[in-house]
Design a protein around this nucleic acid. Structure first.
Lengths: 335, 335
DNA sequence: CTGTTAGCGCGTTCAC
DNA sequence: GTGAACGCGCTAACAG
């Protein structure tokens, strides 16, 4: 393994000069001719700096710790793409960790990530609405910050006391509801996602309240996992009552797709017999038939902002930026 | 920032003892009572080991470098989920890098990743069929191995001289072709993906040759990007000739979906006027209508095997395991 | 402008 | 069973 001092030797200069040839240095300068000799030697020897040593010796950490529920879920992988863009923006690399929905596992992962001494931590995903869970998560993040000096940002709701990219689920869901009210739908049901999931609840609430305010009548919300199968199951439950609502709102696209499948299996046609709307506007789902009415979120952009916020957070106060969604009416809710 | 020697001091022991209390040590043992005192002190002080220091001091590297084309693409994010599982299997963390399709960018990323001194590197994704490109990539990987001592594995074709999880695209595509021949389709077209992409070419070739062997007649293959829009465009090109083939094979699901959209837009019905098949069996696409005939790949499993292979590669010879796909006939190719 | 030296936090010899 | 001392590769003071 070739080290910087090998390079220095090969170039006939001191270790310090070699180091400066690469990173420059506050005030010290290196004669261009020497600098070239060092670089050339490095190339010849195939030298690559040792990141661990650099970090230990006092370089700024350059890694972005990214914590998601499940990287295979398109919602998270799109955000991850944005986070990566944000990281390359300052020459950082991203380290990835998945946790599932469990708060315990999130806390566990956050504590483990402390060893990396990352520059920033980005935590993505809806939280459980449990006072105790939230409190523990808050503490874990606070510890993380004070302990590693890293910046922290959360993508979700502003309830963690850290910088957050707050998705305005409630307002966007309400917008969606109003757009649908305008089409004349009134009897509706909601596939409300996991019980006690903050994001799911916000979307569900925003939609329901706006619908009710518009004079619509609601079915009892049906809970289910935040997945295709969860949506499928929830829709099956909802339809099993025999009474088909005019409109069903699933709190995310993946569930909506499962719901449409469940409807199809029972011979309930979308959008003729029932209309279905989702949330997120997942790119991969853009072409399902009937095309899905949903709320568009710029997921990559959200990921990139999160990195930026986390970076800023290192020096200033926690900030929260609210990002909205835009309603996209498509075939699945055609009158 | 609390260090191990702080913990040692707080526990009233030496640095060495504190270290051994955590990691044990070959022969040296530490009295349980002392060990507890150290652990307790660590907990009190909120100590977290410094991974960089550990690595520098000679610990085994614990990171898995994962290189993909695009993490937002479900093909890669599913494999990434598997890689992550494989990494947690040995207490490792994964660092993520995206490259797009360009070989230059892949090489660039691989060289940058050397700084991390990861335990293993997993390179995922089809390659460009360019002798020079392949050669350079081969060298980059070889250098990577000899310089970092890391294990390397590739997911794709066994053409890089490293351990690889070789997806038998050609055979699986041929299986698909035969299954479709059995349904009586003969006039077919292929949306062949990016020009010079090895994986795309293998799938295209396997399918085409099996079809021709079965007496079918082929249209000129149409190239296009490995994306929804690429499939859309390619299908539009293919249809613009006016003559609609009975069957169109897109070299991956994402393209197939774009192709179906293009057909729909022109009033060409699937599967009534044309049948469409894809490849990969992307979970998120499982519910599109008509449901997509495709080749199922266990992507997560593939990712996990890749990590295992890379780990083994550290000590033994490069191995390659071939994984097959299984044909899944669905609605999009119904007779 | 360049070279010398002292750590960064930790694992690991070696003595005790 | 325990502790003292060295070194991993590098950057950042310090001299010259």
């Amino acid at each position: 393994m070739v080290t910087l001092s090998d390079v220095a030797k090969a170039a006939g200069v001191s270790l310090a000069t070699a180091s400066r040839a690469f990173n420059g240095s506050k005030d010290r300068h290196v004669r261009p001719e020497l600098r070239d000799r060092v670089i050339e030697a490095a190339r010849r020897l195939n030298y690559a700096p040792n990141a661990a040593a650099q970090q230990l010796a006092g370089g700024e950490p350059r890694s972005v710790a990214l914590v998601v529920h499940n990287i295979a879920d398109p919602y998270f992988s799109s955000i991850a793409a944005g986070v990566e863009r944000g990281a390359t923006g300052f020459g950082g690399i991203v380290t990835l960790a998945s946790t599932g929905l469990s708060t315990d596992s999130q806390i566990q992962v956050i504590e483990t990530l402390r060893r990396q001494r990352p520059r920033v931590l980005v935590l993505v995903g809806g939280l459980q609405d449990d006072r105790d869970d939230l409190q523990r998560l808050r503490e874990a993040l606070a510890d993380f910050k004070t302990f590693t000096g890293a910046g922290v940002a959360h993508v979700g709701q502003p309830v963690l006391g850290v910088s957050t990219v707050a998705i305005d689920n409630e307002a966007a869901a309400a917008d969606l509801a109003r757009a649908l009210l305008a089409q004349g739908f009134t009897r509706f049901g909601v596939l409300a996602g996991p019980e006690g999931h903050l994001t799911a609840a916000a979307r569900s609430r925003g939609f329901t309240e706006a619908m009710l305010a518009g004079g619509a009548t609601a079915r009892e919300p049906v809970h289910g996992e935040f997945t295709r199968d969860g949506g499928h199951q929830a829709m099956a439950d909802l339809l099993s009552s025999g009474d088909v609502p005019e409109l069903v709102f699933a709190v995310n696209d993946v569930m909506a797709v499962g719901a449409m499948a469940a409807a199809r299996e029972r011979g309930v046609r979308v959008p003729d017999d029932v209309r279905v709307a989702g949330f997120d506007d997942i790119l991969t789902l853009r072409d399902i038939t009937p095309s899905l009415t949903t709320v568009h979120l710029d997921l990559e952009e959200i990921g990139e902002s999160a990195v930026q916020l986390a970076l800023d957070d290192q020096h200033g106060e926690p900030r929260t930026v609210v990002v909205g969604g835009s309603v996209v009416l498509r075939e699945s809710t055609r009158r």
